[in-house]
Nucleic acid binder design. Structure first.
Lengths: 406, 406
DNA sequence: ATGACTTATTTTAAGATATAAAATAAGTCA
DNA sequence: TGACTTATTTTATATCTTAAAATAAGTCAT
């Protein structure tokens, strides 16, 4: 709903306001809701009354009285509906099922054969995973509010997906349409970093922060940017492509075809390449990136000078790239995530902060906080589920009275 | 007004909706307003009726009938109130007075003695300029809705201004308070590039564009970024500091103290420095930048190879920096302005577009347009006046019925 | 237990707004 | 001049919010 112009719109909007408040501050009594929303107590009674009758809210207990009628606590009914979040990775698919209290009720993970990266294959995997998840948790498909999918690429607004990862090469695939044809549920797709940013800003390291960025360090580098409390998408939903911002005009070649991108230096292959260059080894193509990075961090902790040098250099590149983002967006908080980010995050944090402070302008750098993400492995699934949740919270139809009597 | 919760809020909001529509699409009939806003004809009658009675709207004519009652055209009364926009530059102050139809009714320009850059001096100049402007145009101060000021520095939300330009060195000056103590009008201050971006997006090269960036090329380099139709400010109003994003990790020293900033290469002194380096001359400190750039563009047009080389290099640096901005913000349009931008814009446009397309990712680069700004000299004053206009359009108090009878 | 007091929630009465439909206004055109 | 067309205003009805009054459901001292 854009702007209420009608008296009925007010009721709808007030229901939304109450739902959003409860979603982030459960449980609350009617009085507390009234105070936080500036809605009068009578209105809160009316609004929550409808929501209770519809089964969207539930009473969950009383607050012990301090000399008066005790407050009744209200929450969103955890089982009013369920959310499915899918993390479509370069090497795996993970599906997770949550209730409205964001409790994980089930999960499935598939590895992916290197040859199977066609859209049809993924549609099939997601669709069958969905059924499996529903039956294993005993949840009826009708109770699922929708399915959100985070993908490692660019998603246009009409659901066209482009993924440039090696072995993939999807170009404007009509993925949303394909999924909707196969799956009888509302489907939402977005870039994985964007989804993760949503999860971290709503329920993770950035609870309550209005302007923040979530940085995803993995094989590739991405970012999700939250402005004014909601996901920043730009004109065609491809905002936040931080991994391919340039910090060296004639720098290292990047897999995107350009040179000097942040990703070329601070993506896992970039870090490994720095390491090999320093030690004179040639990079082994098939070596396990995760193991290599883990070993690097261990060596760093042990004081190994090459490891220190490489991680400092990585912090330097990241700091310069992050300073550009900070100068442009002026966020209050930057959250570091992604598997590589989780591994190296603590080790590089001090250096990273130092370089950001050095390269970013003082007014933006002064109040900036940098933290690590809170949802490790589950961040993208969680974020994908948040795409559904976001829709649920603004889904006026859900809050409309379908049949009124008396 | 954040979210209407009350029936009276609806009326206020609908007044705002109508005002904004008229501000950008004058003149319109009630029927057209009804269609564009989805408000019913009866409501439009009520809303415009109040606005007409308050003198905010006026009838300006009829549309010739095509076989029915002719439409009455409505506009915002141009003389309901006036706006003052101030361009506080590094070397001048310019004040302009506009009516609500954005017609310039008067202007004053002061040069600035190099020694006079104290806050007190500027407060004095603005305050006396204001009086002069009012008396020379014959407009009463009570009719002035407010005064907007664009400054070449960072403005925090509480009105603390920091300007790092040579000769200035303002650090968190309480400029807003100082002005408000002296001037008996609503005062709004913001960064000049931000103000200019507002003007270009509302009434200039970006009319109707929701996501865009305005790039200011002058002695310094700044940017104003419009997202979802309004100015993007970030957490502490210092977003958009594009001039100090880095494109070379160990690049040219910049006056900000860092290295490799876009400004160091493509600000006027940076361009001139490129030119001197190429020709082997040492840069003369006191040479007039404007003249030098003008000569450079003339030489370029005449096919001078050094000039071509320098402007191509400038386009290269700008293109790389702009690609970073485009990757992060995914705007629909980039507008080039500022005095240097106006001079070199046409000459470098093709090369600039080429480099942006080369460095930015395809999904963001594909739909991007790059244009020149439309308000040359007046852009910052115009934008500063838009700060007042923005406030006017969302000033509920103005639209409240002060005294209702019958 | 009882009455006084306290706090939470619901009910009620009044005021405001929007819309749809009907009425009116102000033209064109043959 | 009358039929027709389109714009705007008026009217009747349904909602909504709030403030204030009424109820509900406790605590606490006696």
């Amino acid at each position: 709903m854009k702007s209420p112009k009608h008296t009925v719109d007010i009721r709808l909007q007030n229901k939304q306001i109450v739902m959003r408040l409860l979603c982030f501050h459960e449980p609350m009594s009617r009085m507390e809701i009234s105070q936080d929303t500036t809605l009068s107590p009578g209105t809160v009674t009316n609004v929550t009354g409808e929501l209770l009758q519809e089964g969207i809210l539930a009473k969950t207990g009383l607050v012990e009285s301090v000399g008066g009628r005790p407050r009744t606590l209200l929450t969103i009914s955890p089982n009013y509906g369920y959310l499915i979040g899918v993390d479509l990775g370069e090497t795996h698919i993970q599906l997770e099922l949550f209730n409205l209290a964001r409790q994980k009720l089930g999960a499935i993970r598939y590895g992916i054969a290197e040859s199977g990266n066609t859209p049809d294959y993924y549609v099939e995997q997601i669709s069958s995973g969905l059924k499996e998840l529903a039956s294993s948790t005993g949840i009826k498909e009708e109770a699922i509010l929708g399915i959100g999918i985070g993908v490692p690429g660019v998603v246009e607004h009409n659901g066209y997906v482009s993924i440039a990862a090696p072995m993939w090469n999807w170009q404007r695939v009509e993925f949303l349409n394909m999924l909707e044809a196969k799956i009888n549920l509302p489907v939402y797709i977005d870039n994985g970093a964007k989804a993760m940013a949503l999860a971290e800003s709503w329920f993770g390291a950035g609870r309550g922060v209005e302007d923040m960025a979530v940085i995803l360090l993995g094989t590739g580098i991405g970012a999700g940017i939250i402005t004014k409390g909601s996901l920043y998408r730009g004109a065609t939903n491809s905002a936040g492509e931080w991994g391919h911002t340039k910090i060296e005009l004639n720098g290292r070649p990047c897999r995107c075809g350009s040179q000097g991108c942040v990703e070329a230096y601070a993506g896992a292959p970039g870090i490994i390449s720095s390491l090999k260059t320093l030690s004179g080894e040639s990079a082994k193509q098939d070596e396990d990136q995760i193991v290599t990075i883990k070993n690097l961090v261990e060596a760093y902790r042990a004081g190994d000078s090459s490891a220190v040098q490489v991680l400092h250099a990585t912090a330097h590149y990241l700091g310069a790239g992050l300073a550009n983002l900070v100068n442009l967006f002026n966020p209050e908080l930057v959250v570091i995530g992604g598997w590589a980010g989780l591994l190296i995050g603590e080790a590089i944090m001090d250096e990273l902060k130092k370089y950001v402070a050095q390269y970013a302008l003082a007014p933006s750098a002064a109040h900036l906080k940098i933290d690590l993400c809170q949802f490790g492995q589950d961040a993208i699934c969680m974020g994908a589920a948040c795409l559904v949740l976001e829709e649920f919270l603004s889904a006026n139809k859900k809050f409309m009275r379908q049949s009124v009597e008396g």
